[in-house]
């Protein structure tokens, strides 16, 4: 079996350069590649284009890259939890492309699936569709959306094996599987790295073919954005 294991985040991010386009998995702070983000901050690479559903919060997730002005352009669907993001966007310091969440997910999937473009009804008649081709199918209007071209995809999984197979947990799956498919180099960080053969092939969410580098992550914070509970009665 092909071994995809690298020692740590430092080795996993070998080849990362200024001006590159990255995909980063996660929804809010759920399922984000914490170790890869920390390493991007440490490397100090800048002029980055980041494709990620959200932009973290002020002091965690992609917010850490924003604070150090490493991001030139964000491609996201929702950025509401980050004041620094809103400030940089409204002041024009950072370029932002906001796109519908389902369109974002499908554009990631299309990237990895070899589909250059597809039609979706989302955003038709809104500013999201401005300048894009539209077409009618069965009496309904659709907008042509294109795939991406990221140099790296950074994803986070619950378990992974040395062959790069990944299993996600709960809603931490979100964008990670499609982004894993889409990276020219996909880096997977996992909470638990096991030998090939230890994961049940029936349970694999992302087959190892999509993963070029995998490493055992460390010091996961797994922050909760909105802690909502039912009181013990």
């Amino acid at each position: 079996m092909i071994n995809k294991v690298v020692n740590n985040a430092q080795d996993a991010l070998l080849g990362v350069e200024n001006g590159m386009t990255f995909m980063l998995g996660g929804f809010g702070l759920c399922g984000i590649p914490e170790n890869c983000i920390s390493e991007l901050v440490r490397l100090g690479v800048n002029n980055l284009t980041c494709i990620s559903n959200n932009a973290g919060v002020d002091d965690f997730g992609l917010g850490l890259l924003l604070k150090k002005h490493q991001i030139k352009k964000m491609i996201s669907s929702y950025v509401g939890e980050n004041e620094e993001f809103e400030r940089q966007m409204l002041s024009g310091e950072m370029d932002v492309e906001l796109i519908p969440q389902g369109t974002l997910a499908e554009r990631c999937r299309a990237t990895g699936a070899g589909i250059p473009a597809f039609y979706t009804p989302a955003g038709y008649g809104t500013e999201v569709a401005e300048g894009k081709e539209t077409r009618e199918f069965n009496g309904k209007m659709f907008v042509l959306e294109h795939s991406f071209n990221p140099e790296f995809a950074f994803v986070k999984a619950w378990k992974g094996d040395t062959a790069g197979n990944l299993i996600f947990k709960g809603t931490a799956r979100n964008f990670n599987p499609m982004m894993a498919m889409a990276g020219k180099i996909t880096v997977a960080e996992v909470e638990e790295l096991v030998e090939a053969g230890e994961l049940d092939p029936n349970q694999i969410h992302t087959p190892g073919i999509f993963v070029q580098r995998i490493f055992q992550g460390k010091d996961y914070e797994k922050r909760i954005e909105q802690r909502t509970v039912t009181p013990k009665s």
Partner: peptide, 20 residues
Amino acid sequence: PFPIEGEEDADLINAGKQTV
């Protein structure tokens, strides 16, 4: 519904980022 206090799971949230 929201989890019983103490049983929140960072890996189980809704689209509003609330623990569920």
